[in-house]
Design a protein around this nucleic acid. Sequence first.
RNA 1: GCGCCCGUAGCUCAGUUGGAUAGAGCAUCGGAUUCCUAAUCCGGGGGCCACAGGUUCGAAUCCUGUCGGGCGCACCA
Length: 581
Amino acid sequence: MSDTKTLYAAFAAKIDAVLSALEAEAVLPPDCPRQNVSVEPPRDPSHGDLATNAAMVLAKQAKTNPRALAEKIVEHLTRDPLIESAEIAGPGFINLRLADTAWLEELAAIAKLGAEYGRSTIGAGKRVNVEYVSANPTGPMHMGHCRGAVVGDALASLLEYAGHDVIREYYVNDAGGQVDVLARSAFLRYKEALGHDIGAIPEGLYPGDYLKPVGEALAKELGDRFVDEPEDEWLPIFRAQAVTAMMEQIRADLALLGIKHNVFSSEAALQMAGKPEQAEKWLREHDLVYDGVLEQPKGKVLDDWEPVELPLFRSTRFGDDQDRPIRKSDGKWTYFGADLAYHMQKAEGADELIDIWGADHAGTVKRIKAAVAALSEGQGKPIPFDVKLVQMVQLLRNGEPAKMSKRSGNFVTIADMVEEVGKDVVRFTMLTRKPDAQMDFDFAKVVETSKDNPVFYVQYAHARICSTLRKGAAEGLEPSDADLSGLGADEMALIAQAAQFPREVEAAAKAREPHRIAFYLYDLASAFHSYYNLGNDDAQKRIILAQDPALSAARLFLSVQIGQVLRNGLALLGVDAVEEL
RNA sequence: GCGCCCGUAGCUCAGUUGGAUAGAGCAUCGGAUUCCUAAUCCGGGGGCCACAGGUUCGAAUCCUGUCGGGCGCACCA
């Protein structure tokens, strides 16, 4: 698809071609490494539209100084009609200024590609499994899950847009002790629904009201026959029912944020299928699991410490502090033991794995990465595996930290949040900082100063474009590219900003950092607002000019394309591109 | 005590994976609406990129150490 190659990629290719020509002329030695050669828009716009460091990087190999080499490169570049000027600056940068036709070609590309403008093929043929949220099915989604959910969803969309085949997966922890606690809590609510006085919810059980409907449903379905039965009789039934109910709740909560997974994997099913046993067997055969006794951790006093022999994974071989148990002393799997088998299961259906975890699990990254590396390499299919940590969100309400513990039953749910400030605000805010830095989310502040929220700024730019088009149509002016000759420097600058979108998509996808798209959209919106406001100082610069229909049509055409890029970016973030505010 | 993450304007944060004179928003000061949405725009002031070394043509970015904040540290998930 060379005809749809985006502008920055095309110019990078041109410079590459020049370097090849110089190799042919023996100015450069053959096959000299070029991976450090960059072609990017310079930070300072006065340096031109594009800059390359090629001369500085390659001067040594050419056995000359950067400026001398730069002159040779410039000589070639100036032959290109799309390059208006090429100047050598500073220590040896080559600054290029592009001809208007180059920008107008890009504008045409946006018009032609529409929603596909920005889509990349860098991930073609790669199937990536992104696992995110994976909250325990013990209650509604709360703010502690929110950031990882939004970041994971946006990352999945971004990778898809960059050409990957993406699996959006949720791991359901329906096999551990927490879901037994859930079942016991549901049992109490069941008795309550049948008219028994249950008093206060005992310490250690989930006190939240959200289990009341679950208890009522159980009472309706099962009647009173389990009320006086021993736990063994009812626990599996109550557990299954409660987990199902919680997962329905969680799916509904995620839907409020516009999040949908396509695979839900059950930990219980994984264990039923004997996957952890298979993994253990293989690990033991390769001396990666052995029976041993852990030492008491230093720096922490444990009253109830007892040395026990457990099957341990040799994670210390991979830089971990301690070897890690894969089974508990009762013979059941630890979370880690099941999790490593789960990762092997995911690896069977993907070329690459990404997990989005909360930073409170940072301490477990080494062991799981070690296990995946050991198993996948040992089984002949080394698999790239990345754990992205999202840092804690400190949620404040009226200046006071809000509790976010499920056990307390006193938490701010995602449903509350979306109802109060809206999906778009929640999503955009979570994506307007890099995920590995802590953030404060002051509830009251977001509500009060919502007009200062960047999401409105970007949406306003889009809405403004829509309203301008409506206004134009009312005056009989329609966007058209029939005559773009009236477009000048102001318009070219705006196109240049839009033209960066494909680069940003690729850079963000490579770095697995969806927040970059949010910042880019802010910049693009800002460029459009500036452009729009030129018309306030100089009436000739307004988009709609009744006395000049050709120029109006061209400017409206430009506006349509800017709106398109805004829509494409907002779609990646899962934020609506509204037509009116 | 150990491991991981972070430290950039008064505040909240970006910084194109090592590039040129470090940028936005809020706050502050000063301007722009008989005119396409002023939820916007233009301009001023504000910096030892926590600190100290190192790597190189070049460091906020990479390495080492120190200080400060967060998270975690047996068979909980």
